[in-house]
Simulated scan of single mutants.
Amino acid sequence: MRFVWAIALVALVAGCTSSDPSPAPSANGGSPPAWSEPADYSYVLTRGCDAAKPLGRYQVTVASGAVSAADRLDATTVTPTASADADLGPATGDSGEEIEAFTLKELLEMAQTATDDGAQVSTTYDTADGHPTKVSIDVGQGPECWSVADYKA
Rank of each mutant, 00 (worst) to 15 (best):
C145E: 09
T92F: 14
R57I: 01
P143C: 10
A114N: 04
D74A: 05
S147G: 11
G65K: 01
A66P: 01
E106Y: 06
A86M: 13
A86Y: 14
T123D: 05
Q120C: 05
Y41D: 02
A84W: 15
E109T: 09
S95G: 11
P38S: 08
D117F: 09
A70I: 01
Y41M: 03
A24I: 04
V135A: 07
N28V: 06
T77E: 11
A75W: 10
F102A: 04
G15M: 07
S95P: 01
S26I: 06
A27C: 00
G48F: 13
L108G: 03
L45N: 01
T113Y: 11
M1F: 09
D87C: 10
L12N: 07
E106L: 06
T103I: 10
D87V: 11
T115C: 09
A128G: 05
G89D: 12
A114C: 11
F3L: 10
C145P: 03
A66D: 10
S22C: 10
Q112H: 11
P23N: 13
Q112R: 14
T79C: 08
S64F: 03
G89R: 04
A8G: 13
A91W: 14
A14D: 11
S26Y: 02
A91P: 01
L12I: 00
A69P: 05
G118R: 02
K53C: 09
T81Q: 14
T123Y: 04
S42Y: 00
M1C: 08
A63Q: 13
D50Q: 07
K152G: 01
T77C: 09
A51Q: 12
S22Q: 15
A91F: 14
A6W: 04
G56F: 03
G56N: 01
D94R: 07
D71P: 00
A82E: 15
A153W: 15
A84Q: 15
G96L: 01
S136K: 02
A27E: 15
W5E: 07
Q112K: 15
A34F: 04
S36E: 14
E37C: 04
A128L: 06
G48A: 06
A69L: 09
Y41P: 00
T81N: 15
V44L: 05
G140V: 04
S18E: 13
D40W: 02
A6C: 01
S83C: 12
S18A: 14
W146R: 00
Y151Q: 03
S42N: 09
V139C: 06
D116K: 11
Y151F: 15
